[in-house]
Computed example of a mutant assay.
Amino acid sequence: MPQTAPAPAALDAAGVAALPFRIELPAGVVVVPGRAGADAAIYRIQRDGQTLVMIYAGPSSQFPIYDGDMVRTGARASIVVNEAGRRLAMEHLFQRAAAPKEIHVWVASVAGADRDLAERIGQSVDPR
């Protein structure tokens, strides 16, 4: 029987500090790394194994993935949607001169309080 590779482990504090972006992680929320290609990485922001936010750091993202209004604030482009009378920032794109050229952040398919938490975490991301 072929052996499967173990699931990637969550980053420790030093690993999070070495990321090309800053992120505010509430208690119980972790960053789990993955590879997206030769010069790119994907990070899953999770709580209790549930993915709340995804982050791509690499040369060229697939921004935008959500339909909504594009809002530009400084170096960040965000896609904002209207849900139940509220405006939620569902994804963000940072473009940089240095690698990784793009940092793309998006809220995963979660609902209720998890969606609110995911949006807050996504809003906290800022390139280093």
Score class of each variant (00 low, 15 high):
34 G>R: 09
38 A>Y: 06
92 H>A: 11
104 H>E: 01
83 E>C: 06
29 V>M: 02
43 Y>S: 04
5 A>N: 11
75 A>N: 14
24 E>S: 12
113 A>E: 13
123 Q>Y: 05
20 P>S: 06
120 R>T: 04
75 A>V: 12
63 F>V: 01
69 D>A: 11
43 Y>W: 11
33 P>F: 06
3 Q>H: 15
114 D>A: 14
100 P>K: 05
95 Q>I: 14
17 A>I: 09
29 V>A: 02
38 A>N: 09
85 G>N: 10
33 P>V: 07
95 Q>V: 13
27 A>L: 11
23 I>D: 01
62 Q>I: 15
77 A>I: 07
71 V>K: 07
50 Q>H: 15
124 S>L: 02
123 Q>G: 08
90 M>L: 12
100 P>E: 05
97 A>L: 15
114 D>V: 06
66 Y>D: 07
105 V>Q: 01
106 W>H: 08
94 F>N: 03
109 S>G: 13
60 S>T: 13
128 R>N: 12
72 R>H: 13
32 V>M: 05
38 A>R: 09
83 E>S: 08
14 A>P: 06
101 K>E: 09
4 T>E: 15
98 A>N: 15
61 S>E: 05
94 F>D: 02
117 L>T: 08
110 V>N: 03
64 P>Y: 05
106 W>S: 05
10 A>M: 04
127 P>A: 10
35 R>H: 14
109 S>F: 09
10 A>Y: 01
29 V>W: 00
53 V>F: 02
66 Y>N: 09
45 I>K: 00
66 Y>T: 06
49 G>Y: 09
126 D>S: 15
106 W>L: 08
48 D>S: 11
74 G>H: 11
22 R>Q: 11
98 A>Y: 10
109 S>K: 15
61 S>G: 11
70 M>F: 14
73 T>W: 10
32 V>S: 03
84 A>I: 10
31 V>H: 00
27 A>W: 09
103 I>H: 00
8 P>F: 04
44 R>C: 05
46 Q>H: 05
